[in-house]
Every structure is written in structure tokens, then in C-alpha cells.
Design a protein around this nucleic acid. Structure first.
Lengths: 327, 327
DNA sequence: ATGAAAGCGCTAACAC
DNA sequence: GTGTTAGCGCTTTCAT
């Protein structure tokens, strides 16, 4: 493996020139450029990133922290992040925090020590102060951590409104809203949107808390579907929860969408795999990931940001768990 | 941020002693150990991994290469790998090759350059020679790359046999086997198991090729379900494919399991989310990931391996897409 | 425009 | 046992 010194020798120039050439910094004559290029080709030289990092205190790694890799929403997001990162020459390190703050801290510490270029964080187990002290480029994705940190998320309030209205338009009169964990940004916002949409309307509503987890959601849905009489609509804060609710309905012999309509939120591909297909408020997952990554890279490369907080619009995807409004 | 020199000075010893202490190499007296420990505590010293890597040419990163992060099988595998890796002090870099050999090469090159400790590869876009030249610890997971490379996989042949027999026992007389991509180890093995199981039995069989992708599988299943008369059983090589087949059946108004029984292979949690629940040949995904990681770490740390090729047993999980044998 | 040389923080020979 | 010191491969002042 050739190193920069070999290249310099081969080209008959100094290592400093080679370094300048590599980093496109400072002036070098066309002539030496050519010589260096030739030497690099000949020796098949590849710069050693580790050595470089030691001086620059930076790598081209981007840390992506997700709370639950087995929730399909996050792999879909990760894919987008990875795509964009790759196209800019960055490599993403996917870290699954399992919703545990120790793991999150561990990853942040480890990666920071390794001079990661920045983080994209889709979780918020930690207090905002923890991130603020970080002193490494950071963008929050899906969930806002703190106003001072650039954030890309969906318009959760509007999305939840939209979903609720669709349920209302389809004739629901007794809706259970399965809210996500308290204190979780998107979960709170979706609840807010729901409440806003039902306010003053002629509907009975119940709010039930449920984690973003299939099995739990199924259990919880089964419970309230048996305990509460006449529920004809469920709005779950997440597609995974909606899937649980759908499963619960099936196992109770409740027919969807005839007796019960179900609305999800996320737009993950799981929704299309279920039967009936899940009607959902779809986020533009790819766009969210892509946007967050572009923003992070701008911060890393010290390019001015146009906006620090971006809300990506959502879209209603009608499938089989709701009755068509148009008939 | 204190460095090793600061610690040495604070403790009144040389940097070499501190280094020895850190790496538990060579002898140092209890006395200096104590002094060093104190200095480290006082200065809150954390060794710089990058500097360390520059000399040792090794990091504690493990590269995990998966072909498709949106296929839930791989996140579930990744979770296991990550768990174990973390417990041994390694950090996993999850790379999604998207089944493209360029991306796979890119990741391997990039990470190798960064002195990754080793790779766990669950894909095989590249020729075996590519991996052999790698000269970095490597284990193949789920798919065998080459006999010379330690491998952890499921017993795909037996699993497929088991699944087929269950279909046969449940009364299937005309089975379509949806085989995975040709040349893909597990796909070929599962087909082999199927063929072995049906051999000499009184069944009609059709082999259809389908990628491990929901949408494609659905389309393909729809096609053969309309074209081939009287199919009463489908064995899909993957749960995701099975999910596609189930969806196809539903949309054609074919009732499962009464008219058509479906068997999957993988045991991912998606199977339980569907209605009816997917009967499947379940791999012990967590165990596979854990085993592969332990083996890789042994190779990295130059600990003797007991076995180089491990087949993890599979298990039949009966859910609703097949009729119970026991009635 | 180009080169010499001093680091970056650590490891590992080698000497004592 | 412990210390000195020469790298690891690169970047970056500072001269020239």
C-alpha cells in the first residue's frame, strides 16, 4: 500500500504538494498536478483516511441513531439517508438505540470519539442539553429535540387532522385514537391534530395510549374493542399500531371496514401488505431522510442553511380499511 | 481533551507505561498502575481510537453488509449482531448493498480502508475471490460464500422439507413452490428441500421464480393463481414472498386456508401481523446473528474456532394460512 | 507555487 | 519494570 511519501517521491515533488493536490487546497501548478496524478495512478495510491482523521479530527462517517430498527419506518428512513450520504461521499453508521438512553449515549460517545462528521438523530431519549453539549453537527429527524437543532419532520398536526376528517367523512361516530407515548413529539402532535379535527364535531372519542409496537397495540386494541361498545373507527398514531388494531379486529370477528374503520400514520410498505390494505396518513419517508441528510452535510461542510426547521407535507393514502368517501 | 502525554505527566510516569496499562500488555507495578488510574480519573482521559488505529491498523468496527434493509429479515438479524457486538465492545456499521455489487464493493473498500476489524456478510453479489483477497476477518451469514469462509446459516434443506411435509399432511395436492433467485444459496437449498420432500409423493408441483420482494411476489402469485387451475398450496421461499402470495389470494377472492394454504420461510414478525397469520418455517434469526458475531469476534481476536460452518435448526410455526393437521 | 518540518495521539521496539 | 523514541500517514504552518 503506497503512502503519500511514495507518491511524492515518484512524482518528484514534496508531500505537501501531494496533500494540497488531494485536498484541492492552495495553489499548485498544472505541471506538478499532472506529475502527481500520474504517480497516483501508477502506484494506485489511496489516501489513508485514518491518518487524515488524526489531524483533521473528522471522518466522513455520519451516525444515524434510530430507536427501533425492527419498526419498518426506520429502515425505510435509513435507506434514504444512506442513499444521499453515499452520493456525497459519506458513509452512514446505523445505530439502534433500542429506546435505551444508555445505548444512545454509548453510540454518541463512541462515534464522537471516532470523529464522526455528524449525527442524524431520530430518537430523543436524552435531554436536549445532552445534544447541545455535543459540539458536533447534528440534525433531528422525525422528532424535534430542541428548537436550536435543525429538524426535519412531517406535518404531524395537519396529517392527523386530515386522517381524522377522512374517518369522519366516512361516517365514523365513535373513534378511538391510539396515541403514542407521552412526551414523544410526533405522538403528541398527532394527538393534537386529532383533537383539533374532532373539536365541535358530533363524535364520541376515546384516547388510549399505546406504544409503537405491534404486539402491544394488538393487545390494547383487543381490550378496548371488547370493553367499549360500538367503536366504529380507530386512528392509530403509527402504521405498526394500526396493524395491531387490524389484527385485533380480525381476531374478534369484527369486519373491517364495514363495522370498523382503521386509519394508520406513517405510510410504510407494511400497510400495503395487510388485508385489507391500510388506509394511512403517509409521510414522505424518503424525502424526510434525504432532506435531513442534505442539511447535515451542509452543516458539516459549513454551507449556509436556508431553513432550520422543515416540515414535509403528508398525504392521505386510501386503501381498504376505510370506506370510500366517494360512493 | 487530555491525551496520553498529559496522563503520563500527571502520573509522573512515561507514556509507554500508560500505554501498557491501557492495553494490559507487559508488566507494570501495582504502584504505577495506581498512579495511572488516578491520573486518568482526574483528567477524565479517554484514549483516542483514531490515533490508536493509525498504528494498530485496526478499529473495533464490524461491518455488516445486508442486501436489502427494507426486508424485515435483515433488521432482525442486524439487531442480534449489534447486541452481541456491543457486548464485546465492537460497534457495527450497517451497510445496505441494495443487491448491487458496486455498493457492496464500495462499502468493503471504504471500511477496509478505515481498518474495520471484520465483516459479516449476508449477501453475495461478488465472486468469492473478491472476499478471499480481502485479507480481513470475515464470516458469511445466511448465505454461504465459499467453503473457506466460516458460515452461519439455517438448515434450509431440512426446513423446506419440513414445510413441504406440513403442506402435504394438510391435504395439499397441487403446490406451487415460489423459489427465490437462482444461484442464491438459501433459495437453491430451499428448492432442493422441497423437491426432496415431494419426490415420489402424490402431488402436482409447479416451480415459479420470484424475487424476495413483496410487490413482485404478489404480482407473480396473482398470475399463476389465475393461470394454473386448482392450486391448493403455495410454499414461498421467504415470508415476504408469502405475504405477497397471501395478498394476491385475497385480492382474487381465494380463501386462505380453506381453498389455498400458504407456507412461508423465515419467521420474521411480519408473519404474525398478517391475517390469517402466516404459517412458516421459522429460522432462529437472533441466534444466527449472535452466532455469526461471536465467530467473527473470535477470528478477530485470534481465538481458535470450534466449527467453521454452523447450521442453525429451524422450526415450524403453525398459524392460520394452513389447516391444522391435528383435527 | 513549493518544500521542510512540526505535529495529530498512540503503539511498540529497544534500551536501561 | 520503566522510559526513550521512532514511527503510523497525513495536514498545515511557515519559509523560501
Amino acid at each position: 500500500m503506497a503512502n503519500i511519501r511514495d507518491v511524492a517521491k515518484e512524482a518528484g515533488v514534496s508531500v505537501a504538494s501531494v496533500s494540497r493536490y488531494l485536498n484541492k487546497k492552495g495553489y499548485i501548478s498544472e505541471d506538478t498536478k499532472l506529475k502527481i496524478r500520474k504517480a497516483i495512478d501508477k502506484l494506485e495510491y489511496i489516501p489513508n483516511q485514518v491518518a487524515r482523521s488524526l489531524t483533521t479530527k473528522q471522518t466522513n462517517f455520519i451516525g444515524l441513531i434510530v430507536p427501533d430498527i425492527t419498526n419498518p419506518f426506520f429502515p425505510e428512513l435509513a435507506r434514504a439517508v444512506e442513499d444521499i450520504a453515499l452520493s456525497y461521499g459519506y458513509t452512514v453508521v446505523l445505530c439502534n438505540s433500542d429506546e435505551k438512553s444508555e445505548k444512545e449515549i454509548h453510540y454518541i460517545d463512541t462515534l464522537k470519539q471516532k470523529y464522526v462528521a455528524g449525527f442524524i438523530v431520530t430518537t430523543n431519549q436524552l435531554r436536549a442539553s445532552h445534544y447541545e453539549d455535543l459540539n458536533v453537527p447534528l440534525v433531528a429527524l422525525d422528532r424535534m429535540i430542541h428548537e436550536s437543532i435543525p429538524t426535519v419532520s412531517s406535518n404531524n398536526v395537519d396529517g392527523a387532522c386530515m386522517g381524522t376528517n377522512h374517518l369522519l367523512d366516512s361516517g365514523c361516530e365513535k373513534i378511538v385514537f391510539m396515541r403514542g407515548p407521552k412526551g414523544l413529539g410526533p405522538a403528541d402532535d398527532r394527538l393534537a391534530g386529532f383533537l383539533k379535527a374532532v373539536e365541535g364535531k358530533n363524535v364520541q372519542t376515546h384516547i388510549v395510549e399505546s406504544p409503537f409496537h405491534f404486539g402491544e397495540s394488538e393487545k390494547i386494541a383487543k381490550k378496548f374493542l371488547t370493553e367499549i361498545e360500538g367503536v366504529d373507527g380507530i386512528f392509530a398514531s403509527t402504521d405498526v399500531s394500526a396493524a395491531g388494531a387490524l389484527k385485533a379486529a380480525h381476531s374478534l370477528g369484527i369486519s373491517v371496514p364495514d363495522q370498523l374503520q382503521i386509519m394508520g400514520f406513517d405510510g410504510i410498505s407494511l400497510g400495503g401488505m395487510l388485508t385489507p390494505g391500510l388506509t394511512t396518513v403517509a409521510q414522505d419517508i424518503y424525502k424526510m431522510g434525504a432532506l435531513a441528510t442534505r442539511i447535515l452535510i451542509k452543516i458539516i461542510e459549513e454551507i449556509e442553511l436556508d431553513e432550520r426547521v422543515i416540515q414535509v407535507p403528508v398525504e392521505l393514502v386510501e386503501r381498504g380499511t376505510t370506506r370510500s368517501v366517494h360512493r
